[in-house]
Design a protein around this nucleic acid. Structure first.
Length: 274
DNA sequence: CCGACAACCTGTGAGC
DNA sequence: TGCTCACAGGTTGTCG
């Protein structure tokens, strides 16, 4: 489900309701997701006030002053805001209860595949091993064609999986990698180091525009994407290539092709992408 | 450092 | 209709 836009949409969805609220309870229904849940999470945050929700790549960082709760949604995770009258469903693994104890607002994490993560970070969150290795944020000014040209110099790996490497650039997942390369007219199989400066000048804005459009549309809605308020995003209706094998290219009409890179599906138009 | 691959886990849908 | 199998938004870790 979540690439950068979906995580950002989630962040924007939950922050206004939760900021400044104190935690009044924690309910963990599984011992672990990708990693063990903090075993003493209640003791750590009950009574603490949430002072902000930040995003770094696809991670959310809930600021509790004395530390941060780091949340990653993996491939199938979602966060919703619900009330106590809403019973927990099968894969609702963690509830954080905020506000009034008798009528709490609940931040509920669902994650069927359990590839997600919830970790407690003390001190400087950015120094945590998982965050320290992350690359640049694609929606900042730091991410430009000059930077990208240097970053990709000498790389023989294909451009598409390279764009998805969070140690270089964060937040670009399998969907938006294909979509961005289509918008930039670049063949996903091209060696990353061989993409010309001129083409990178197109790719960088294409990535920014693709991610921004998806955020503006409320994130993509695949099978199980759920907004924090329970609604769904609509960006999937704007896909140029992802999931459209055999369908006509919206620009030139040729059939969209699918191939495998790494262990992931890639979609592209042989007419528009060289 | 680079690149390829397996692993984590459940649900779904295509194909027979 | 029912079964099996491949594949699904991500990331780490291991190996050559």
């Amino acid at each position: 489900m979540p690439e950068l836009p979906e995580v950002e949409v989630t962040r924007r969805g939950i922050e206004p309701s939760l900021n400044g609220q104190a935690v009044v309870g924690v309910v963990a229904r599984v011992p672990a997701l990708r990693y063990p849940l903090p075993p003493d999470l209640g003791a750590l945050i009950v009574g603490r006030r949430l002072t902000g929700v930040a995003r770094r790549g696809k991670y959310l960082l809930l600021d509790f002053g004395r530390g941060h709760l780091l949340i990653h949604l993996g491939m199938s995770g979602s966060l919703r805001l619900v009330t106590a009258s809403q019973p927990a469903a099968k894969h609702d693994h963690l509830d954080l209860l905020f506000g009034r104890k008798d009528r709490p607002l609940i931040l509920r994490m669902r994650d069927p595949r359990r590839f997600g993560a919830v970790l407690w970070l003390e001190g400087d969150a950015e120094a945590h091993p998982l965050l320290k290795v992350l690359g640049v944020e694609p929606l900042t000014g730091e991410f430009d064609a000059i930077w990208l040209k240097r970053e990709l110099a000498g790389l023989k790996a294909a451009i598409k999986p390279t764009l998805m490497d969070s140690h270089r650039i964060v937040g670009i997942g399998n969907i938006y990698a294909s979509e961005s390369l289509f918008r930039a007219g670049i063949d996903p199989r091209r060696a990353a180091g061989s993409v010309s400066r001129k083409r990178l000048e197109k790719l960088v804005p294409a990535i920014k525009a693709t991610l921004s459009a998806a955020i503006a549309a409320g994130g993509s809605s695949l099978r199980d994407f759920i907004h924090s308020d329970g609604g769904s995003g609509y960006f999937q209706q704007q896909y140029f290539v992802y999931g459209r094998r055999g369908e006509p290219c919206r620009v030139c009409g040729r059939a969209i092709r699918e191939l495998r890179q790494g262990q992931r599906a890639t979609f592209y138009c042989a007419g528009c992408q060289k």
